[in-house]
């Protein structure tokens, strides 16, 4: 087991170097530069001033030297500073990540709370009118463009009814509120974003649960459970549902890296300063240190996710461990 663990760990290092090297090359070779973005086509920006900026940022050196330099700093856990505002990259990511993480976790929770009962209902009542209506609603949510739905709901709940705030995370003068008021305020601001995100992606989980449940319900042990006279709820929730959860856990595991990936359109519409916007803005200003920081983080999380999944499988399934001897 230890050998397996070490082998897996050692394997991720060259993988990480490969990923960062390729992304580094790609973003630096893309046309446009941080200096152009900063100059923003201002005639007062002379060619000398541009050259000055380029050497200040070290962009005039060969690209592999730049990469080596970047990597050298990375091993000391230094992601560098942003070209745009001079803030450390880690600080920028640490500011944006909690926002995205909170929204994504909230969404995930809501999806589970809604998706599982919906799936169970669909499976138990498969083929009935109720099931069909639910299928249509769930798929409608899945197909509707997020930005459109968001704007409609903002307009309805925010403008027409005036019940909910339209955008942002806080009201004006947030600091001057009491603690409970602050929580309430934040909560009110999160209702629409989380609601929209959950509604547009509840389809996935509910369909997995539904189809898994249908399969499980045909299994002999369910028949046995029924035959021995257990109540309907006992059969469904006590015996069938736990078996549906196994594939669900895999799906949840794979969504870990996604928890930190924000959607640009979504965050832009709700004026939420999360990871999606940070990345998008960095790309447009060619803020290389920030782009690389976010991509490296993403790569690490993905590798970590895979790694954990591998280990998990190995723990759960002896056949995988046995495989290493053959």
């Amino acid at each position: 087991m230890t050998k397996y663990f070490l082998k897996k760990t050692a394997g991720t290092v060259p993988l990480l170097i490969g990923i960062t090297l390729i992304t580094f090359l790609v973003i630096h070779l893309a046309p446009g530069s941080a200096v152009d973005a900063k100059a923003s086509f201002n005639p007062k920006m002379t060619a000398q001033a541009k050259a000055k900026l380029e050497s200040l940022y070290g962009l005039d050196r060969p690209i592999l030297v730049q990469y080596a330099d970047w990597m050298g700093r990375l091993v000391r856990c230094d992601f560098g500073t942003s070209f745009v505002d001079g803030k450390p990259v880690t600080e920028k990511i640490l500011q944006a990540a909690p926002v995205t993480l909170a929204i994504n976790l909230g969404t995930l929770l809501l999806i589970l709370v809604l998706g599982i009962p919906l799936g169970v209902y669909g499976a138990v009542r498969a083929g009935t009118l109720g099931d069909k209506v639910l299928t249509v609603v769930v798929f409608a949510g899945f197909s509707v463009p997020t930005f459109w739905l968001s704007l409609i709901l903002m307009s309805f709940f925010g403008v027409r009814l005036g019940w909910l705030p339209i955008s942002g995370l806080h009201s004006l003068f947030y600091d001057e509120m009491g603690t409970w008021q602050q929580y309430l305020d934040l909560g009110r601001h999160l209702i629409l974003p989380i609601g929209v995100a959950a509604f547009t992606s509840v389809a996935g989980i509910s369909r997995y649960v539904r189809s898994g449940m249908i399969q499980v319900l045909e299994k002999p042990y369910i028949r046995t459970a029924r035959a021995k006279g257990l109540s309907r709820n006992r059969v469904i929730y006590g015996h069938a549902l736990p078996n549906v959860f196994l594939p669900l856990i895999t799906i949840l595991g794979l969504s870990i890296p996604g928890l930190l990936g924000g959607s640009v359109i979504f965050e832009t519409i709700f004026s939420v300063p999360g990871m999606g916007r940070l990345f998008f803005d960095s790309v447009f200003t060619r803020d290389y240190p920030v782009i690389m920081g976010i991509l490296t983080l993403g790569a690490c999380l993905t590798l970590l996710g895979n790694f954990l999944a591998d280990i998990g499988y190995a723990l759960a399934d002896p056949r995988i461990r046995v495989g290493e001897h053959s």
Binding site: L151, I166, S167, T268, S271
Partner: peptide, 20 residues
């Protein structure tokens, strides 16, 4: 003087429509 950052034009128009 409060300077809000609202990256989407439609959103800022909605905010304007309620007097925010």
């Amino acid at each position: 003087y409060i300077y809000r950052i609202i990256p989407d034009q439609t959103t800022s128009f909605l905010e304007l429509s309620v007097g925010n």
